[in-house]
């Protein structure tokens, strides 16, 4: 369920390095399931700087607001333009169509090294469940 083409944070975000070296980020299936129906996303603007493990934005469900943290540091180059009209994409397809932002990271290797592999993330979820 958590593909191996990307890495994960303990706050349930994923980061996937694209062919051009930029990083696509989003939240995991587990996270969207916990949040319930997502109704609104407050995301940074292109050009904004984000730091690994610091706040990237907010995700709102009907009766909760949760912070989303950046899995890597860098500059936001794009936020998913579909989400303004279709926040439910994050519920339906969090790993592909429901991506949140594209980040150009200057500390790419180091940041990615800090994150968990799919296997490690699943072990983490397992340990959290007990």
């Amino acid at each position: 369920m958590n593909p191996t083409d990307r890495k994960y944070s303990k706050e349930h975000e994923w980061a996937k390095v694209e062919a051009d070296g930029r990083v696509l980020v989003g939240i995991t299936h587990y996270a969207q399931d916990q949040l319930g129906d997502i109704v609104f996303l407050d995301l940074p603007s292109p050009g904004d700087r984000v730091e690994q493990y610091k706040k990237l934005g907010e995700v709102e469900s009907v009766k909760a607001v949760s912070d989303v943290f950046a899995p890597v540091s860098g500059q936001v180059v794009e936020v998913n333009p579909e989400l303004a009209e279709r926040p439910d994409l994050v519920n339906d397809d969090p790993l592909e169509k429901g991506w949140l932002a594209r980040i150009s990271s200057d500390t790419l290797e180091q940041d990615m090294d800090n994150l968990l592999t799919a296997e490690e993330y699943e072990a983490f979820l397992e340990s959290e469940a007990h």
Partner: peptide, 9 residues
């Protein structure tokens, strides 16, 4: 029960 997600989206 009302569809609150729809109301907010």
């Amino acid at each position: 029960r009302l569809d609150e997600a729809r109301a907010a989206r």
